[in-house]
Every structure is written in C-alpha cells, then in structure tokens.
C-alpha cells in the first residue's frame, strides 16, 4: 500500500456533480437593479418619488394648461380667492396665481438643479483628487474648503450683488460656491477608504493609470453616497433660493420664484392668506418629498444592509 504510486489519472470524481456545484441559481442583478428593488419596497420613498415627478411635470406643463400667463394683469380680478376661473386665485396686481406658482417652480427648480449639478461636478472631481493623492495635497485642499465654508452664504450673495444684477445668476453662483464642499468631503472620504482596497491595487498591478483607476474603480463605487448627497442638496438649494428671494435678494419682479411669491404673499397674509399658502405649501411639499426620497435612497443604496 505504502509504495503504491498514485497518478492524477487514477482519480475521478464520484457522486458529486462538479458542474452543478458551481452553478448560481439566483437571478443576476446589477447593483442598480438591486437598489431599485429595495427602493420599490419602501412605500414612503416611492410616494415621495411620485410627488417629485408630478411636481416636475407640472413645472413643465402647467403654464401651458392655463390661458393666463404669469405676468398678465387682469385689473377686474384683483386679489381673488381660489375659484373656477383662477384655480389658485389672483394676487394683488390681478395676476393668476396658478400660472405664477408653476412659473415660480420653473425658476426655483432650475436654480436648484443647476446649482446641484455644479456642486456635484466640482465636489466629485475635487474630492476625488484630494482623496486619491492624499498627503500634503489633501491637507491643502481640505483647508481651502474650510476657508470657503467659513464665509456665510448670505455674505456671498450680498458681495455678488455688488458686482452683479439681481437675478438667477448670483443665486446659482452663491449656492455653487458654498455648496460643493460637502460633496467634496463625502467623495474624499470614500476615495480615501477605497484606494487602499485590494481591487484598486490589482488594477495598479495590471498597469492601470490614474484616470482609469479614478473613473472605473473609485468613482463608480462612490456613486451611492454621491446620489444620496445629491438628493439632499436639491431641497437645500430650493430652500436657499426661497430664503434669498424672501429677503429680496433674489428674482426681481415680474419674474416669479417660490421664494418671491411667498414674500409678496406675506404682505397680504391677514387679508388673503391663500397668496402665501400656495407657494409655501409647494416649498414644503417639495422639500419633504426630496428628503424622504433621500432617506429611502440611503437605505436602498447602502450595500452594508445587503442580506
């Protein structure tokens, strides 16, 4: 027995189907399909998503649904309460509030989305570079963020209004200047953690250059936190726009935004509360919906919760 020489050919697999032991029964799902399934299971987040889609749709189509334009004055219909002709009533200058609220939605949402896109682009690139190179580069870049953060947003707007005409532009610039730091910090933290992972080292051993590692390995794995951060930036931007317009630093008349509508509604609050109610309700519903969606996305995209 001891001096019997065994060769590989002398063995065969018995009683176990090797092929089938390697098979995977579960349906193949990508990360995003998986996340979508979890988001669908979350009723609150799904409801919030539907509300947001409806509001976006209304911002696009509502001004076409009514015969009145947002700056058309009707002198015989000043300060009407909601009725079948003017669904949200009219304001003190006889303009149709339904048209103005949705025109305001266009402005507010445009500001919010443009500012957010700028924030995300700057934040992802800045944070990615800072985290990837680390060391002294990282220290300097993070200190710069802290310096920018130390100047309040309101001060930026006031300073910008010294050199620019009031309107959409200074608001977007102010939100963009002060908003990207948060995103940059999130991305930096993620990249700092991911770049030590073995799959990044493996890509390096295969000869991958920095661009490839950032674009193929680091950024895709940061997408979850980026999207979560993004869904919280949009309502913040809406709110900032509303708050600046409310202070009179925003969109000048006759253009409308939710903030400027709320501001002019406040003046008439004792006589005609509906003039404040509609724009204020829009701001609240939109912000609530986006925050709830953000919460839902955080649960859906966080792979640590994967069972």
């Amino acid at each position: 027995m001891a001096d019997m020489k065994l060769k590989k050919e002398d063995f065969e697999v018995v009683g176990k189907d090797l092929k089938s032991s390697e098979e995977i029964i579960r349906k193949s799902l990508t990360y995003w399909q998986d996340a979508w399934m979890r988001l669908k299971a979350n009723r609150v987040a799904l409801f919030a998503l539907i509300i947001i889609i409806i509001m976006l749709g209304m911002a696009v189509f509502a001004p076409m649904m009514t015969e009145y334009s947002y700056d058309q004055q009707m002198y015989d219909r000043i300060s009407q309460t909601p009725n079948s002709e003017n669904w949200f009533g009219t304001d003190e200058l006889g303009r149709d509030l339904f048209a103005r609220v949705w025109q305001g939605a266009r402005t507010s949402l445009f500001v919010a989305f443009v500012a957010t896109i700028i924030n995300v682009s700057i934040g992802v690139i800045y944070g990615g570079i800072s985290g990837y190179f680390g060391g002294k580069t990282d220290i300097v870049m993070m200190r710069i963020i802290e310096i920018i953060y130390s100047i309040p947003r309101l001060l930026w707007v006031i300073l910008l209004l010294v050199v620019m005409k009031p309107g959409i532009k200074p608001i977007i610039i102010a939100i963009a200047i002060t908003g990207w730091g948060g995103m940059a910090r999130v991305v930096r933290g993620q990249v700092l953690q991911l770049k030590q992972m073995e799959f990044v080292l493996a890509a390096k051993t295969l000869g991958a250059d920095t661009t490839r590692i950032l674009l193929k390995h680091l950024i895709p794995n940061t997408m979850g936190p980026i999207i979560i951060n993004l869904t919280f930036q949009v309502p913040t931007a809406v709110f900032t726009e509303a708050f600046l317009s409310y202070l009179g630093l925003g969109i000048p008349a006759p253009a409308a935004s939710w903030g400027s509508l709320a501001q002019s509604g406040t003046k008439m609050i004792l006589l005609y509360p509906h003039m404040l109610l509609f724009p204020a309700a829009m701001i609240s519903i939109f912000m609530l919906a986006f925050n709830l969606l953000g919460d839902g996305l955080r649960d859906a995209l966080d792979p640590r919760l994967r069972a």
């Binding site: 799959f199 493996a202 295969l206 000869g207 490839r212 193929k216 895709p220 792979p303």
Partner: peptide, 27 residues
C-alpha cells in the same frame, strides 16, 4: 502579476466578471 489575500476586497463590486478578467486585456 499578483493574486491578493482577501477575495471579498480584491474584486470591484461594480464590475462584471467579464470586465474584471478583461481589465488587463483592455489596459
């Protein structure tokens, strides 16, 4: 080339097996 220690950390979770194995071929 190198084979790594932790099979859970050494594969990019966002890439398919084709892309993981094909990465070197692409580079």
């Amino acid at each position: 080339q190198m084979i790594f220690q932790d099979p859970y950390a050494s594969l990019n979770p966002r890439m398919t097996v084709t892309d993981i194995v094909g990465e070197g071929i692409d580079i």
